[in-house]
Amino acid sequence: MRGKEVIASLKEFISDDTLIVSSNGNVSRQAYNFLPQPQVYLRGSMGLPMSIGLGLALAQPEKQVLVITGDGNFLMGLSSMTTIGNYKPPNLKIIILDNAIYATTGGQETVSSTVDYLKLLEGFGIQHYGSLNSIKSPSKLLEAFEILLTSKQTTVLHINVEEDIENLENIPWQPKEIKNKFMEKI
Protein backbone atom coordinates (compact mmCIF):
# COMPACT_ATOMS: atom_id res chain seq x y z
CA MET A 1 0.00 0.00 0.00
CA ARG A 2 0.98 3.59 -0.49
CA GLY A 3 1.19 6.01 2.41
CA LYS A 4 -1.95 7.80 1.39
CA GLU A 5 -3.92 4.54 1.32
CA VAL A 6 -2.69 3.72 4.80
CA ILE A 7 -3.78 7.17 5.97
CA ALA A 8 -7.18 6.82 4.29
CA SER A 9 -7.75 3.47 5.99
CA LEU A 10 -7.21 5.11 9.39
CA LYS A 11 -10.39 7.10 8.96
CA GLU A 12 -12.79 4.79 10.74
CA PHE A 13 -10.59 4.78 13.85
CA ILE A 14 -10.54 8.56 14.22
CA SER A 15 -13.10 10.05 16.59
CA ASP A 16 -13.72 13.63 17.76
CA ASP A 17 -11.39 12.83 20.64
CA THR A 18 -8.46 11.97 18.38
CA LEU A 19 -6.04 14.83 17.79
CA ILE A 20 -3.74 14.26 14.83
CA VAL A 21 -0.36 15.85 14.19
CA SER A 22 0.98 15.16 10.69
CA SER A 23 4.52 15.78 9.44
CA ASN A 24 5.37 18.32 6.76
CA GLY A 25 5.06 17.69 3.06
CA ASN A 26 3.01 14.88 1.61
CA VAL A 27 1.99 13.32 4.91
CA SER A 28 0.13 16.40 6.16
CA ARG A 29 -1.47 16.92 2.76
CA GLN A 30 -2.72 13.34 2.85
CA ALA A 31 -4.00 13.75 6.40
CA TYR A 32 -5.80 16.92 5.29
CA ASN A 33 -7.40 15.19 2.32
CA PHE A 34 -8.28 11.78 3.74
CA LEU A 35 -9.00 12.26 7.46
CA PRO A 36 -11.59 14.29 9.43
CA GLN A 37 -10.63 18.00 9.75
CA PRO A 38 -9.32 20.09 11.40
CA GLN A 39 -6.04 18.67 12.69
CA VAL A 40 -2.50 19.95 13.16
CA TYR A 41 -1.05 20.03 9.64
CA LEU A 42 2.63 20.91 9.77
CA ARG A 43 3.96 23.03 6.93
CA GLY A 44 7.55 23.01 8.15
CA SER A 45 9.37 22.15 11.37
CA MET A 46 10.70 18.96 9.84
CA GLY A 47 11.67 16.55 12.64
CA LEU A 48 9.34 18.03 15.22
CA PRO A 49 5.99 16.22 14.83
CA MET A 50 6.75 13.84 17.72
CA SER A 51 7.68 16.73 20.05
CA ILE A 52 4.54 18.63 19.12
CA GLY A 53 2.59 15.44 19.81
CA LEU A 54 4.28 15.11 23.20
CA GLY A 55 3.30 18.66 24.18
CA LEU A 56 -0.24 18.16 22.95
CA ALA A 57 -0.59 14.84 24.78
CA LEU A 58 0.56 16.45 28.04
CA ALA A 59 -1.90 19.32 27.63
CA GLN A 60 -4.86 17.12 26.68
CA PRO A 61 -4.53 13.91 28.71
CA GLU A 62 -8.17 12.94 28.10
CA LYS A 63 -7.72 12.86 24.32
CA GLN A 64 -5.81 10.49 22.08
CA VAL A 65 -2.96 12.18 20.28
CA LEU A 66 -1.89 10.50 17.06
CA VAL A 67 1.30 11.58 15.32
CA ILE A 68 1.61 10.50 11.70
CA THR A 69 5.15 11.01 10.50
CA GLY A 70 7.27 10.19 7.48
CA ASP A 71 10.55 8.34 8.00
CA GLY A 72 12.61 11.41 7.09
CA ASN A 73 10.86 13.43 9.76
CA PHE A 74 11.15 10.65 12.31
CA LEU A 75 14.88 10.24 11.76
CA MET A 76 15.51 13.98 11.89
CA GLY A 77 13.73 14.17 15.24
CA LEU A 78 15.11 10.91 16.58
CA SER A 79 16.50 12.35 19.80
CA SER A 80 13.01 13.52 20.76
CA MET A 81 12.04 9.86 21.03
CA THR A 82 14.32 9.57 24.07
CA THR A 83 12.30 12.32 25.74
CA ILE A 84 9.08 10.54 24.83
CA GLY A 85 10.53 7.27 26.13
CA ASN A 86 11.24 8.99 29.42
CA TYR A 87 7.90 10.73 30.01
CA LYS A 88 5.65 8.25 28.15
CA PRO A 89 2.28 10.00 28.10
CA PRO A 90 -0.22 7.12 27.83
CA ASN A 91 -2.32 8.97 25.24
CA LEU A 92 0.48 9.47 22.71
CA LYS A 93 0.49 7.22 19.63
CA ILE A 94 2.89 7.44 16.73
CA ILE A 95 2.65 5.96 13.26
CA ILE A 96 5.81 6.00 11.14
CA LEU A 97 5.04 5.84 7.42
CA ASP A 98 8.30 4.50 6.13
CA ASN A 99 8.67 4.79 2.36
CA ALA A 100 12.49 4.93 2.75
CA ILE A 101 12.53 8.13 0.70
CA TYR A 102 12.05 11.86 0.98
CA ALA A 103 9.00 11.60 -1.26
CA THR A 104 8.02 15.24 -0.98
CA THR A 105 11.29 16.53 -2.38
CA GLY A 106 11.41 14.13 -5.30
CA GLY A 107 12.04 10.68 -3.88
CA GLN A 108 15.66 10.83 -2.76
CA GLU A 109 16.62 7.85 -0.61
CA THR A 110 16.66 8.21 3.17
CA VAL A 111 18.87 5.93 5.27
CA SER A 112 15.79 4.42 6.87
CA SER A 113 16.39 0.91 5.54
CA THR A 114 19.51 0.69 7.76
CA VAL A 115 17.39 0.99 10.88
CA ASP A 116 15.96 -1.89 12.89
CA TYR A 117 12.96 0.03 14.19
CA LEU A 118 11.86 -2.55 16.72
CA LYS A 119 15.25 -2.69 18.40
CA LEU A 120 15.42 1.07 18.27
CA LEU A 121 12.06 1.48 19.99
CA GLU A 122 12.92 -1.17 22.54
CA GLY A 123 16.08 0.79 23.27
CA PHE A 124 13.97 3.86 23.95
CA GLY A 125 11.81 1.80 26.29
CA ILE A 126 8.79 2.49 24.13
CA GLN A 127 6.01 0.01 23.56
CA HIS A 128 5.61 -0.83 19.91
CA TYR A 129 3.06 -2.77 18.03
CA GLY A 130 5.69 -4.14 15.72
CA SER A 131 6.72 -3.41 12.20
CA LEU A 132 4.08 -3.91 9.59
CA ASN A 133 4.76 -4.35 5.97
CA SER A 134 1.72 -2.87 4.27
CA ILE A 135 3.00 -4.19 0.99
CA LYS A 136 3.13 -7.82 2.11
CA SER A 137 0.31 -7.88 4.65
CA PRO A 138 -2.21 -5.04 4.23
CA SER A 139 -4.95 -6.98 6.04
CA LYS A 140 -3.12 -6.69 9.38
CA LEU A 141 -3.32 -2.90 9.29
CA LEU A 142 -6.82 -2.50 10.64
CA GLU A 143 -6.16 -4.74 13.59
CA ALA A 144 -2.99 -2.78 14.33
CA PHE A 145 -4.82 0.56 14.21
CA GLU A 146 -7.41 -0.73 16.64
CA ILE A 147 -4.74 -1.86 19.11
CA LEU A 148 -2.72 1.33 18.70
CA LEU A 149 -5.60 3.70 19.32
CA THR A 150 -7.02 1.80 22.27
CA SER A 151 -3.67 1.12 23.91
CA LYS A 152 -3.20 2.62 27.38
CA GLN A 153 0.44 3.53 26.91
CA THR A 154 2.70 5.39 24.52
CA THR A 155 2.77 3.15 21.47
CA VAL A 156 4.51 3.30 18.11
CA LEU A 157 3.59 1.54 14.91
CA HIS A 158 6.14 1.36 12.13
CA ILE A 159 4.73 0.67 8.67
CA ASN A 160 6.67 0.02 5.50
CA VAL A 161 4.81 1.62 2.63
CA GLU A 162 5.32 1.74 -1.12
CA GLU A 163 7.26 4.56 -2.72
CA ASP A 164 4.90 7.17 -4.07
CA ILE A 165 6.16 10.57 -5.12
CA GLU A 166 2.86 11.92 -6.37
CA ASN A 167 2.35 15.28 -4.65
CA LEU A 168 -1.11 16.38 -3.61
CA GLU A 169 -2.16 20.02 -3.81
CA ASN A 170 -0.98 22.24 -1.02
CA ILE A 171 -3.24 22.63 1.99
CA PRO A 172 -5.32 25.73 1.26
CA TRP A 173 -5.54 26.89 4.90
CA GLN A 174 -3.00 29.41 6.09
CA PRO A 175 -0.98 28.20 9.13
CA LYS A 176 -2.73 30.64 11.45
CA GLU A 177 -6.06 29.32 10.21
CA ILE A 178 -4.92 25.75 10.90
CA LYS A 179 -4.08 26.75 14.47
CA ASN A 180 -7.35 28.62 15.03
CA LYS A 181 -9.57 25.91 13.58
CA PHE A 182 -7.78 23.21 15.54
CA MET A 183 -7.93 25.08 18.83
CA GLU A 184 -11.62 25.89 18.34
CA LYS A 185 -12.43 22.20 18.09
CA ILE A 186 -10.80 21.29 21.42
Partner: peptide
Protein backbone atom coordinates in the same frame (compact mmCIF):
# COMPACT_ATOMS: atom_id res chain seq x y z
CA UNK B 1 17.41 16.84 24.13
CA UNK B 2 17.57 19.87 21.83
CA UNK B 3 16.21 23.40 21.82
CA UNK B 4 14.15 22.94 18.66
CA UNK B 5 12.52 19.93 20.29
CA UNK B 6 11.67 22.16 23.25
CA UNK B 7 9.94 24.61 20.89
CA UNK B 8 7.96 21.69 19.47
CA UNK B 9 6.86 20.58 22.94
CA UNK B 10 5.84 24.12 23.93
CA UNK B 11 3.93 24.66 20.67
CA UNK B 12 2.09 21.34 21.05
CA UNK B 13 1.23 22.26 24.62
CA UNK B 14 -0.13 25.61 23.47
CA UNK B 15 -2.22 23.97 20.73
CA UNK B 16 -3.65 21.90 23.59
CA UNK B 17 -4.59 25.22 25.24
Amino acid sequence: TREDEAVGIACGYYLGK
